[in-house]
Nucleic acid binder design. Structure first.
Lengths: 257, 257
DNA sequence: CCGCTCAGCATTGGATCCAATCTGGTCCGC
DNA sequence: GCGGACCAGATTGGATCCAATGCTGAGCGG
């Protein structure tokens, strides 16, 4: 086996395998699992932007020393989810409107490309699955569920082999904005929900007709519309204690800057 | 000050400051400098793809313990330059044609976007600088210099404030393929050199005329042409045959033609 | 009453030591 | 002679301990 040949390098990102036996082994799967868990907490909002992350606290929770936590934090920093300040501490990264806009602009360019590369691999069975997922989006009841189902739909459409880095980059862009997307799709803007469903249908049709250009254009437009919605709702970035907008739970720690 | 607000998270990437005093301080600038140095060696080919990286060796060279090296390697892994295998070792990542193609496709989409966002900030003085850099590309004598000057030109064109993540992503894509680009621009394909110069001139004109769409299209085409060249020269990926035996200068390939 | 300084504390960064894993070579059995 | 298993060396992964840094708050002086 040639170790250097297969590596994408980003394997660390590859979701939570969850397969690890409970044994306190030296395997680095442990570190990977911790990274995946922390990442999950950040993107789904359990660790909202601005939250201070104390190494010791996390270490104790997972029953390991601070060392693997340090490496994990370094890793999360490199993906932009965490901000490290030398000799001071780590915080969950916070986005402002400009950064979020930038990320959406990147997605507008990259996700259509990913879709293009994935489309030749789609089969008739895929289309059935896509329809099912689109219906799941339509059937979602809470905003949290809508966001998740929407992501499932996008992920399925762009699933396919042999585009590792691109897919990981797109995934990464989704992760960075996931928290704010959830804030955005509050009931007050549910009109957007109908647009999303319509755009999904259009997208689905283009994909089924194997019209690559139309599919790309539709997807780009779809993302662009969401970006415009973000730009019209800058209040979601005013972390502090914006009345009523931020989550239902006591996410917002008092020590937030 | 709010620590979490300013962070792009990717600050680690921000080039080699080189400013570090020699003192054996606890400052993490040391780690950052090591990361930058290693990264530099990888992208410029001093550490070619497939090279085994031993933690202890690097640690001794920089006069630190293995610990910061470990974190550095994790970091480089997350950016795809290094491949880690659990409990086994680290190697400089190797690209195959498909991956390289994928990276170029991404650059075709992202770099024009970066250019678009940078163009409003360009001034008359910028244009003078661009011309100077374009001439430097034309005046380059070795292929190594050509690659470097070409990168300088592209970087200057896309320089500007407030697009941190996008710029870092584009930079990252350049880094990943830099080694192979150098392999590519051998004398044998010097015809491409003339194309590059011509395309640079076209690009420059579009930028000076502040024609954003034309500039984007020209840049995309420029990158696309290089990608096609890569696709026509798959042999640049056939370095070394066995994983362990990739010599330090295996990339010097005395391809005469 | 307010601003500055300095000491104490919490937290992070690094070095050394120990345990687990993998590789490579060699030996034995077939 | 050849293939598989075993043993030793090398190398990485993790835990604990120590040093340095940055924040916090009390005390002092203006």
């Amino acid at each position: 086996m040639s170790p250097a040949a297969h590596g994408s390098g980003l394997s660390f990102w590859a979701g939570s395998d969850e397969g690890g036996d409970g044994a306190v082994t030296h395997d680095q799967a442990r570190s990977a699992a911790i990274a995946a868990e922390l990442r999950g907490r950040i993107i789904d909002g359990r660790l909202p932007p601005g939250t201070r992350i104390r190494q010791e606290e996390i270490a104790e929770e997972f029953g390991v020393s601070r060392l693997p936590i340090r490496e994990t934090l370094r890793f999360l920093e490199s993906s932009g989810l965490v901000t490290l300040v030398a000799s001071t501490g780590a915080w969950v990264s916070r986005l402002d409107l400009e950064e979020c806009r930038e990320i959406y602009l990147m997605r507008e360019r990259l996700e259509p490309l990913l879709l293009r590369l994935a489309m030749p691999g789609h089969t008739t069975e895929s289309f059935v699955e896509f329809s099912r997922l689109a219906e799941a989006v339509a059937a979602s009841t809470s905003r949290g569920e809508l966001v998740e189902r929407d992501r499932d739909f996008h992920r399925a459409l762009t699933a396919g082999p042999a585009t590792k880095r691109l897919r990981e980059t797109v995934d990464h862009l989704w992760n960075l904005t996931h928290f704010y997307r959830r804030q955005l799709l509050s009931p007050s803007v549910s009109r957007r929900r109908e647009d999303i469903l319509t755009e999904h249908r259009m997208l689905l049709r283009a994909v089924e007709e194997r019209d690559v250009d139309a599919a790309e254009a539709t997807l780009a437009l779809h993302i662009r519309h969401t970006r415009r919605l973000v730009e019209r709702n800058p209040q979601i970035f005013e972390s502090g204690e914006a009345p009523g907008t931020v989550g239902p739970d006591a996410w917002v720690r008092p020590d937030a800057p």
